[in-house]
Nucleic acid binder design. Structure first.
Lengths: 225, 225
DNA sequence: CACTCACATTGACCTGTGTTAAACAGTATT
DNA sequence: AATACTGTTTAACACAGGTCAATGTGAGTG
C-alpha cells in the first residue's frame, strides 16, 4: 500500500488532477515526492516560503494557527485523499499562512507549485478545477466564521457532528471521531474541558451516547434543537 | 461622476479586468449594468442564486451573515473600487453564501458571471488574476479566524486600527472609521457596548484619543502592546 | 505488572463579554 | 422649536465558557 512510487490513477481520482493528460501528469509526477511523517512531525510552518502543495495519501494532517503565547487553534483536519495548500502559490509573498503537522503517522505527496502552475498556464480546464477547489475552501471558512460568531459551543459541535452524517441517514447513526477529542475541540474553538462538559450534557439530555471516540446520535432530526 | 455608462478605464484599473483586451472588455460591459442602492437596501440575500458579481463604484457594501434569531455579523465591508462575490460562480450550487446590503447610498456595477466565465475560458491570464484575487480572500478569512479564536476583543480592534495605518507612518496618526461604530463592532464580532468600553479603556490608558469617528493613535509601535 | 504518559473528565472558581436598561447626543422631520 | 429617530455611551448584572487543580483511565513500555 505505502510506496515511494506515485501511481497516475492515485492522482487522477482527485479533481485537481482529473483533467490532466498523460504528458501533464508525467510532468507533474516528475517533480513530486513522497514524504513520510511521524506522529506530531511538522510538515511546514506558518510564514515559511511555499514552494509545494500537498495531497494526503494516508493519515491525517492538522492545519493550525499559533498565538505568541503558545496557544494553538486547529483550523482544518485534512484526511487521506485530500489536497491542501494548493491556493498558496497565488498569495502575495507565497508564504504558508498556517502551520501543518501530522496528527498521526502520515504519508503525504508533495507537488511543485511551479510545475502545477506550468500546467495551469496551458489548461483552462485545470484552472477551473482549481478555482472550484478554492471556492470550496472559501465557503468552508465562511461557515467557520458563521459558527464562531453566531453559534455557541454546543451548536458548533452538533453541527460538526451532523456534518459527518452520511447522506440518507434517517434517525440514529454512529459517528467515529477522526481525531482525539482535544483536537476536535480545538477545531471547534472549544477548550477540552468545555468539550467534555458539552458531551456530558448532550448525553444527559438523551441526544447522544458517547463511547470513547464513537458518538451515537439518537435522532439527527432533533440533535440541533 | 455618477452615470449609467460604464467606462472601460474604470474597469481596467481593477486587477480582475486589467488583462482584458478591447473585445473582451466590450463583451463584458454589454452584460453589465449599473445598480443604484439606497442606504440599507439589500443587494442580494444569502442562499439566493448567484448570476452576477459586483464592483463598488461609490459607497460601501456590507457583507453579513444572519442567524435564525435575527442576529447579524458583518464579515466584510467593501469600499469603492473593490469587487465582491466574484468567486461564487465556482461554488457548488452557485448560491451567495452571505447577504449584501448598502451601508450608505451606493452605486454598484453588476457583471454577468456567465460572460466573465466565457472570458476566463479563453484567457489563462485572467484565470490567474482571479485565482490571485481568491487567494487574497482566503488569506483575509484565515486572518479573521485567527483574530476570532486567538485574540481578545481589544486586540482585534487594535489590529484592525493598525491595519488602516498608511505605510510609512512613524508614530502618531489619525484614522477615520469608514462606518458607524456599531458596524465596525459587528465586523470585529464585538457588541456595540463592549466596543464603546474598549474605546474608553484605550483612551484612559493614553493609547488613543477618540473624536466622533476619528481615532488618533498616539504611537503605532506601542498600540498593540 | 508496575510505571509512565498522554488524554479525558470533574468540580470549583473566575472573567471577558454579552445583556438589559436607561440616559445621552446628534440629525432629520414636522 | 418640539419631536422622533438612530447611534453611542454608561452602569449594573448575568453567564458561557475559560482557567486551575485534581483525579481517572487506558495504552504503551521496560
Amino acid at each position: 500500500m505505502s510506496t515511494n512510487k506515485i501511481m497516475p490513477d492515485e492522482l487522477r481520482r482527485h479533481p485537481l488532477f482529473g483533467g490532466l493528460d498523460n504528458d501533464q501528469l508525467a510532468q507533474l509526477m516528475e517533480t513530486a515526492r513522497v514524504i513520510q511523517l511521524d506522529e506530531g512531525q511538522q510538515l511546514f510552518q506558518c510564514q515559511q516560503e511555499a514552494r509545494q502543495f500537498f495531497m494526503v495519501r494516508s493519515g491525517t494532517i492538522r492545519l493550525f494557527l499559533s498565538a505568541p503565547d503558545g496557544a494553538e487553534k486547529v483550523i482544518h483536519l485534512i484526511a487521506a485523499g485530500e489536497t491542501f495548500a494548493e491556493a498558496i502559490t497565488f498569495m502575495e509573498g507565497q508564504i504558508y499562512p498556517v502551520n501543518a503537522s501530522a496528527l498521526d503517522a502520515c504519508e503525504v505527496l508533495a507537488f511543485s507549485n511551479k510545475a502545477y502552475r506550468t500546467i495551469l498556464h496551458s489548461s483552462t480546464d485545470t484552472c477551473f478545477r482549481l478555482m472550484a477547489d478554492m471556492s470550496k475552501w472559501l465557503k468552508r471558512q465562511i461557515t467557520d466564521i458563521d459558527a464562531l460568531t453566531l453559534q455557541n459551543a454546543t451548536l458548533r459541535f452538533t453541527n460538526y457532528l451532523l456534518h459527518q452524517v452520511p447522506a440518507g441517514t434517517e434517525h440514529e447513526v454512529a459517528i467515529t471521531l477522526g481525531a482525539p477529542k482535544n483536537v476536535i475541540a480545538s477545531r471547534l474553538s472549544i477548550q477540552p474541558e468545555s468539550f467534555s462538559r458539552i458531551l456530558r450534557n448532550l448525553q444527559s439530555e438523551g441526544h447522544i451516547t458517547v463511547d470513547g471516540n464513537v458518538i451515537y446520535i439518537k435522532d439527527i432530526n432533533t440533535l440541533g434543537q
